[in-house]
Amino acid sequence: MTAHTKKIVLLLIGWFFVIIGGIGIFLPVLPTTPFLLISLWAFSQSSERFHDWLYHHRVLGPPLQEWSEYGVIPLRAKIVALATMAVSATLVISFSSTPWYGLAAMVILMLIGAGFILSRPSRRKQKDGT
């Protein structure tokens, strides 16, 4: 793949996930920040201008900056993510004919994801250590 083609593909990926993240602002079951993080990465590889625009955006930028600088996942996002995982697991277990090992794998992966989410701070630490 040529450098020019790679740049175009990464720009398309970036804008695709900006659009998906934008939709997530209005749909509570669709997480906004993870999609914008993908966009931010794609733009960092393809367009400094779009990367800076997204990172410093008045509305979209603060959660990206909090994650990038402090590893913060806001409490509201944690609650939505964990509730969505719990509802999804319940529905799949209750209404699918997936074999037990598929269900076990799903639950294990969700628990790993939940553990990661819970291990991140909900807000940045203050300078006095609180």
Rank of each mutant, 00 (worst) to 15 (best):
I73H: 06
V87P: 05
T98H: 10
V59A: 12
V87D: 06
M85H: 01
S68I: 01
A86F: 07
L75C: 01
E66K: 14
V80G: 01
S88M: 13
P74H: 07
F95G: 10
L91T: 02
E69Q: 15
V87H: 03
S68W: 04
M85S: 13
Q65R: 15
S97L: 14
A86C: 15
E69P: 02
W67R: 01
P62L: 10
V80H: 00
G71Y: 06
R76M: 11
L54D: 08
S96L: 13
L82I: 15
T84R: 02
L91P: 01
H56N: 15
I93A: 15
L64C: 12
S94Y: 01
I79E: 02
A77N: 10
E69W: 06
S68Q: 14
K78Y: 03
P63N: 10
T98D: 04
F95N: 04
P74I: 04
L91K: 02
S97R: 14
V72F: 09
I93W: 03
S94V: 05
I93T: 11
P99L: 11
L64A: 11
A89R: 01
L64E: 08
W67Y: 14
Q65W: 05
V80F: 14
Q65C: 07
E69G: 08
I93R: 00
S96T: 15
M85C: 10
P99M: 09
R58K: 15
W67Q: 05
V80W: 09
M85I: 02
Y70T: 00
P74M: 04
H51D: 01
S88P: 00
L91M: 11
E66A: 15
G61F: 08
A77M: 07
A77Q: 12
H56M: 03
P99N: 12
P62K: 10
P63H: 13
A81H: 05
H57A: 08
T90N: 03
V92Y: 02
Y70N: 14
A81D: 01
I93L: 10
H51I: 01
A89I: 04
P62M: 12
T90D: 02
H56V: 02
L60P: 08
M85L: 13
Y55H: 05
Y70C: 09
S94P: 02
L60M: 15
L75D: 00
V72W: 08
P99Y: 06
L60C: 10
K78T: 00
S68D: 13
G61N: 04
V87M: 09
A83E: 01
W53K: 14
H51Q: 15
